[in-house]
Design a protein around this nucleic acid. Structure first.
Lengths: 151, 151
DNA sequence: TTAAGTGCAAAAGCTTTGCGGGTAG
DNA sequence: CTACCCGCAAAGCTTTTGCACTTAA
């Protein structure tokens, strides 16, 4: 994420902490900074490693707890992923995913046409739709090349 | 899943086992049957419980291993889910999801208009798209009712 | 000052692995 | 017959919890 966007996001977070009386601690700032720097849907552990490199002493537990706090605040999100590890996503704006069926890798893409999809009516289910995202499921380049090798 | 569809699926599985020389064991049949009977993206553990009720003696390990085998064969899929537990899905045809941002619940929906979405061009990324699915992210009925209570 | 947050250690899930015995083809 | 599969027990990861100490407001 570019420096300017990141700075804006950090300021928004700080403002939100003040307005919601969530304590603005050193750890929370560092953890959010690390999350904003990681693309590709980092796990809590990857965020922990990044934080640990920059400022040793922050505990793994705090990283786990803080990421959940940030999700509840709406500052980051959890992203659906086929795997037994929670994935976080610092991108909060609408975007879409390529999902490899073979290696479970998830790649971000942007596509204006997909952003403009009409929202189907789900009022009969009582579900309030806030955001529409598309998954393109298939086989990624690496897996395709590997498959061709074998044949 | 209705009896007829299930029977067709079981027969297709058996045929695939023969053609790919995958051993057709008692356990594999029972585990696939249980998975086909479970909606709502069962975890391996839920499949295990269902199998255990019907035919005690099948081990949890075998359920974990077999579900992975079925995924590799393309008989079932893993479905992306925001949580630290793998979710399987017996539905292999295109369908879409409502994802609740508050409780992480994932609800299946069918929508012909969404099925017909144009496939964006991903050839520059070397990604081969096989299927397009949509996530409608928002708040489910139960969480909305709970929120209103609080206010 | 004090309620909220943190670190540590330990517990609690979920999933995988190694291995001896069993079985489908 | 024999390569593949199963069950068991144990290990390996990821995530959560309880509690005493620290700190932002």
């Amino acid at each position: 994420m570019d420096r300017e966007t990141k700075q804006t996001r950090m300021q928004a977070f700080e403002a939100q902490c003040r307005s919601q009386s969530v304590r603005l601690t050193f750890q929370r700032r560092v953890i959010l900074e690390a999350a904003l720097d990681l693309d590709n849907h980092p796990t809590a552990d990857r965020v922990f490693e990044t934080v640990a490199k920059r400022t040793p002493g922050v505990s793994r537990t705090t990283v786990y707890r803080t990421l959940e706090t940030l999700v509840r605040m709406g500052v980051i999100t959890k992203t659906p992923h086929p795997s037994s590890v929670v994935r976080y996503d610092p991108r909060v704006e609408t975007h879409h995913h390529l999902i490899c069926q073979r290696c479970d890798d998830v790649i971000d893409i942007s596509d204006a046409r997909l952003d403009a999809l009409p929202v189907p009516d789900t009022s009969d289910l009582g579900f309030e739709v806030l955001d529409v995202r598309v998954q393109l499921r298939g086989i990624c380049r690496r897996c395709r090349e590997r498959k061709e090798e074998r044949s």
